[in-house]
Design a protein around this nucleic acid. Structure first.
Length: 866
RNA sequence: GCCCGGGUGGCGGAAUAGGUAGACGCAAGGGACUUAAAAUCCCUCGGUCCUUAGUGGCUGUGCCGGUUCAAUUCCGGCCCCGGGCACCA
């Protein structure tokens, strides 16, 4: 092997090793039931054309774990692919007059090259792209299965419509009334749509939240909130003079005696039915129309004014017997509960506001212990606990108790039943877009909806299309695509479904597909999935805490119910990494500036275009629009992939946000250089010496501390990576080891010194192998090894080297540090107690005072209480 | 409003079965090398006080209390920052 160059040249080293890895096919993985598997997965990217620092961080973290686990002897599956359907491809295609497929494939090529430059250890043989028919045909296949058992269904409903994206959005994809992708206001539109019945699994998804100990608490909480289980009762209200019963859902059946009116969602079928012929029918219908078409966002903003219209009918409170008016109100939602609310103004703020506005009765039925309430004078609803009043036989009971008692009473007397309600709605998966997986359905005038026969799959997305300006899907206009013969009755003019699937469907099973990506007889090879799944460690951004992660959990249950997989939860452990942030810089004339557009040579930073002083804004998530982005390419050119990786790992623990610092990157680069120079300077002498393998006792006092430090470092780095992925502290441990190495007064003619030094450099190479892999390979090769460092087992620490010969004992007086001394490790408490009490520096603190108590801890401290 | 996180030097961050607060790095200051600069190497670096500059005193982990021989760590109350949910009956 060649000796090391004087100079650390990352560019040369990195491309050389990347070529070698490829030649060796080092990252290829095979199923091997004889070996323990480890499935490490990072969230696959959308092929936008460029990887950004968020990807770099995410994939660096994953790569460290993959390489580490591999050195620990696991058979590691570490795949990469492309979440390749979606709107940006269509927009780009329209803007650049290309085709989404071409644009996407070109981006994939560019990004694959970038990822390779980072030195990530992916098994590229398993690469997949969700936009290819060999992938989505299986999604269509499962769709047919889901249709068969009612898991996929079509219904007409009001849906979230984004005008800019020209498509509908699932509830999960609407954030504060805005489109999750483009930020445009979402409107309500009535459409026929395909849905997945995720609500069937609401309880199961919720229950299993507590069976995911490897997930961050935060994500679990968010999912629980999203599923939103409420326990209460359904109560039936008979309508006066009609043969109708309106059921309501409530969590506060204890307040049923206080229900003085009822509110129906505007979309509730009873609204038009009961108002028919009444004096205010016209007013009711106008109201319904106005509210139904209103933005959902407008309906959910704070302080939104409550309004409603009396629909001209009454119903009977089954418990109080009271005759109560029925309103339709804007705050009642058709999709929740039964779409009907029993309004108890005394104990619900919303109902209270409504009652005050329309002059409705407020009857107090729960009395707080320390005061009296009067419906006529109260200023806000009382939602706390108390004693039941005005509630017939339940008077005097605690309201918590009444909750149970009234529920039982309802069931016994046939007025209702205990019930639960979930906030989670079914997943609307129809998208009126071109660049997605076609939904394999056919509309026939005679037969209705007819599934595409299995043998006709895949329904290939036609590529010979003209993209339409404005983002409208060209599919409905494509006669070749749309016009089909009905597979059921043979009728000629059936029409193919032109909606495509939400891209979150593709990302709900790609991790199974990676197990056997070339499988062309089913979604995946059963044996391969049984071997690899579930994913042992999943890593990605917290922004998918609900969307992707909930959909994937659901889809896995669907696969489970189809008997396709043995497990219900796809991801055993989840790490949500923090964002990559940087300060924003703004020029008064040119707005936000890219980092390279800022001239920082002078005292005050100025705009490089106009020379005006810039304003430095707050540290925010890197984003193109704010221009506070660092281009990974520039970074790799300047410092190399290893330094880039190094900084991403060192600057912060993975779950926390990372603040970008150019100087921090420099620091990492300097550190690698320091190791390089030290190793290069020693290589001649240590190369042909065996790494020290003897007992530490045989070492002299000069070199033994280094030997111990090596093992302490192995111990610390192993623990930090294994237990909590805290690479920042693992790296500081390696830095400490380096500092020790460079501080040792080694004798170059002492063979045991050289042997320990060989061990030290070897350890640096091994410990850095997951973190700075090219650098480590180079060191490793210089030490005389012929194969990859990745094939060498992770170093083991010696227990007997962890203990130091001497430990520092701290002496406190009344808990304050007063002195310290060295003592042989393991010296018993009595001895150190005596040593502490006789310590001369301690004398002045205890002199003349009574020693009340002395606490001594072996190898730690003595605390003297006076 | 409700539910999660999180507040530690000039900065990023260490240290939790309670036991030396500030590891490691960055920045800053001083010095060495150099004709000079860069690079590199060495030293100092929470605040404060000292007629004893010390293995010195006091103080210090958002604020106020408590438990304890001992609290960044545990308990109670409050303040601030970040995130999620929010007319869900």
């Amino acid at each position: 092997m060649t000796l090391m160059d004087e100079k650390y040249d990352p560019k040369e080293i990195e491309s050389r090793w990347q070529k070698k890895w490829e030649e060796w096919d080092l990252f290829r993985v095979e199923d091997d039931p004889a070996r323990p598997k480890y499935y490490l997965l990072e969230m696959f990217p959308y092929p936008s054309g460029q990887i950004h620092m968020g990807h770099v961080r995410n994939y660096t973290i994953g790569d460290v774990v993959a390489r580490y686990k591999r050195m620990r002897g696991f058979n590691v599956l570490h795949p990469m692919g492309w979440d390749a359907f979606g709107m940006p491809a269509e927009n780009a295609a329209i803007a650049n007059k290309t085709h989404p497929a071409k644009w996407t494939e070109a981006n994939i090529d560019a990004m694959r090259a970038q990822l390779k430059r980072m030195g990530f250890s992916y098994d590229w043989n398993r690469e997949l792209a969700t936009c290819r028919p060999d992938y989505y045909r299986w999604e269509q296949w499962l769709f047919l299965k889901m249709y068969q058992n009612g898991m996929a269904y079509r219904k007409e409903s009001f849906v979230n419509w984004c005008q800019d994206c020209q498509t509908v959005l699932a509830n999960e994809q609407v954030e504060a009334g805005l489109c999750w992708r483009c930020g445009q206001q979402v409107r309500q539109k009535q459409l026929w749509q395909w849905f997945f019945k995720i609500s069937d699994f609401a309880q199961d998804l919720l229950s299993y939240c507590d069976k995911l100990p490897g997930w961050p608490e935060k994500v679990i909480t968010m999912q629980k909130n999203w599923i939103g289980k409420s326990v209460g009762a359904q109560i039936n209200f008979a309508v006066e003079a009609h043969d109708e019963v309106i059921p309501v859902f409530t969590t506060r059946q204890d307040t049923v005696f206080g229900a003085t009116f009822m509110c129906l969602a505007p979309e509730h079928p009873m609204v038009t039915k009961l108002s028919k012929g009444c004096a205010r029918e016209k007013e009711v219908l106008q109201f319904v129309e106005r509210i139904a078409l209103q933005d959902r966002s407008a309906r959910t903003v704070e302080n939104y004014e409550k309004e409603g219209v009396f629909i001209g009918a009454h119903c009977l409170n089954p418990l109080s017997g009271r005759r109560i008016p029925i309103y339709t109100a804007n705050f009642a939602l058709m999709e929740y509960g039964t779409g009907a609310v029993m309004a108890v103004p005394a104990h619900d703020q919303r109902d209270f506001d409504f009652a005050r506005q329309y002059g409705l009765d407020i009857v107090v039925v729960v009395k707080p212990d320390d005061s009296d309430l009067d419906g006529a004078t109260m200023t806000e609803a009382y939602v706390g606990e108390g004693r039941m009043i005005n509630s017939g036989q339940f008077d005097g009971m605690g309201n918590r108790e009444a909750l149970e008692e009234i529920a039982s009473y309802l069931e016994k007397n046939n007025h209702g039943k205990r019930a639960v309600s979930f906030r989670l709605r079914d997943w609307g998966i129809s998208r009126q877009r071109y660049w997605g997986a076609p939904i394999p359905m056919i509309h026939c005038e005679d037969c209705g909806i007819v599934p595409v026969p299995e043998e006709d799959l895949p329904v290939v997305l036609p590529e010979e299309v003209e993209m339409l300006a404005g983002g409208k899907s060209p599919l409905p206009e494509l006669d070749d695509f749309v016009n089909v013969t009905c597979p059921q009755c043979g009728r000629k003019n059936a029409r193919r479904e032109t909606d495509t699937m939400d891209t979150f469907v593709e990302s709900s099973w790609y991790f199974e597909r990676y197990c056997s990506p070339q499988c062309n007889t089913s979604m995946f090879d059963r044996e391969a999935v049984d071997y690899w799944m579930p994913v042992d460690q999943y890593i990605g951004g917290v922004e998918h805490a609900i969307l992707h992660l909930l959909y994937s959990r659901y889809y896995t249950r669907v696969l489970h119910d189809q008997g396709l997989v043995k497990f219900k939860e796809p991801f055993t452990n989840l790490l949500t990494q923090g964002m990559v942030c940087k300060e924003t810089v703004m020029c008064p004339e040119h707005g936000y500036l890219l980092p390279q557009e800022v001239d920082s040579r002078k005292e005050n930073r100025v705009c490089s275009k106009c020379g005006k002083p810039v304003t430095v804004g707050r540290v925010e998530k890197m984003s193109k629009s704010k221009k506070n982005v660092i281009d990974p390419n520039i970074l790799i050119d300047k410092y190399g992939a290893d330094t880039t990786r190094f900084f991403c790992l060192f600057a912060a623990p993975p779950e926390r946000d990372l603040e970008w610092s150019e100087q921090g990157v420099e620091g990492g680069y300097r550190f690698l250089n320091r190791i390089w120079r030290l190793a290069a300077g020693l290589m001649d002498e240590i190369k042909d010496v065996q790494a020290f393998q003897g007992h530490p006792d045989s070492l002299d006092d000069t070199i033994r501390p280094l030997f111990q430090k090596i093992h302490q470092t192995i111990y610390k780095v192993t623990r930090d990576i294994e237990n909590r992925f805290h690479f920042n502290t693992a790296i500081s441990a390696v830095m400490e080891l380096f500092n020790t190495i460079s501080g040792i007064a080694m004798q170059r003619d002492n063979s045991s010194h050289l042997a320990v030094m060989h061990l030290a450099i070897e350890s640096l190479a091994l410990l850095l192998a997951p973190i700075a892999p090219h650098f480590a390979e180079e060191l490793w090769a210089a030490l005389g090894h012929k194969s990859s460092v990745l094939l060498y087992p992770w170093p083991q620490y010696r227990e007997d080297a962890l203990e130091k010969d001497e430990v520092l004992i701290v002496i406190q007086v009344n808990g304050k540090l007063r002195s310290r001394f060295q003592v042989a490790t393991g010296t018993d408490e009595e001895t150190i107690k005596e040593m502490a009490l006789s310590d001369e520096r301690i004398q002045k603190f205890i002199d003349g005072q009574r020693v009340k108590k002395v606490i001594a801890l072996k190898n730690k401290l003595v605390n003297i209480v006076v």
